[in-house]
Design a protein around this nucleic acid. Structure first.
Lengths: 158, 158
DNA sequence: AATAATAGTTATTGACCATAACTACTTTTG
DNA sequence: CAAAAGTAGTTATGGTCAATAACTATTATT
């Protein structure tokens, strides 16, 4: 990293040096994440969903009968934290939770028709909100970005 | 996105469909962020620093005399939340906080020698921890990733 | 049958972010 | 100049999200 020596004194007026942090990949990833997340959050709020709750619903829609444990593992959230989300989804009748006959410890999660409808609308709105944040990148650049991000995640997989 | 129709039933065994979320850039950014952040966090913890606190220290080191307000604006954190971090840095004698003569509402923040030393060591450790997460990417790919991320952030600047 | 492991739950904690309300001080402006 | 408005820092508080420990019920192991 370029040393960019500190100025001897800095009264708010001068251009501010972001210091070592801007050189860190994690900082830059976080800043981009905040942009995308707040846009997605706002879009999801229109459906009374928070992002983690939407993620749960989305996976349940695509995987009827998935168990809470499998869902938690996939989304990398703690089962204990999942409970309250599924509770809410069930209360709102977006998801059904039925005990399995073969193993009564387990539950099958399925989206209701209402759940599927809400999911589809929310997914569209969130995707649109994201797209508005990504206009600075061409389609192929977005694909490239995605691939690079996934290689970071993939290289650290358990 | 490819529709990838839901299977009629899915008992944990089958490959799980991540649903709409994997198609969202924000989700992918977050997953990569978690990898980088937890590595950085662990490295920072060895110096009894959390990442936001380290970021504050880092900017103060590079900008002697910066005010809390300018610091908060740069790091995009609330002034109210900054107070506790600066409190801690001051208590640990890593940073000094002196009232300005010209405007007694403002304070000048400066890193102490101890603060600079700790910062330099922590910055090195954090950078090393990050590098270990980025071995899957060549140097030029890392630069590309950084540029793409910054274009997202930049396009949404106030 | 006793023990261990698994699935789900509850309660609690901590990190982090955001807001409102406040004090002290400075700048604006009538 | 005095009143009003704005700025800097602070305090208190609440919300979201993540992580842990301890618990119950059920199934698998030996």
């Amino acid at each position: 990293m370029p040393p960019s020596k500190p100025s001897t004194t800095n009264a708010t007026t001068a251009p501010v040096d972001e210091g070592a942090v801007r050189g860190l990949m994690g900082y830059n990833v976080k800043r981009a994440y905040i942009v995308l997340h707040s846009a997605a959050q706002q879009a999801a709020a229109a459906f009374d969903l928070r992002i983690p709750t939407f993620s749960c619903l989305s996976v349940i829609v695509r995987n009827p009968g998935i168990t809470p444990s499998a869902l938690a593992e996939l989304l990398k959230i703690e089962r204990s934290n999942l409970v309250v989300m599924v509770d809410e989804l069930e209360t709102r009748e977006l998801v059904s939770r039925t005990q399995m006959k073969t193993d009564r410890r387990r539950f099958e999660l399925k989206a209701t028709v209402r759940g599927r409808r809400l999911h589809d609308k929310a997914a569209e709105a969130i995707a649109a909100a994201e797209a508005a944040c990504l206009t600075a990148l061409q389609d192929d650049e977005q694909q490239l970005l995605l691939a690079l991000l996934n290689r970071i995640e993939g290289s650290m997989a358990d």
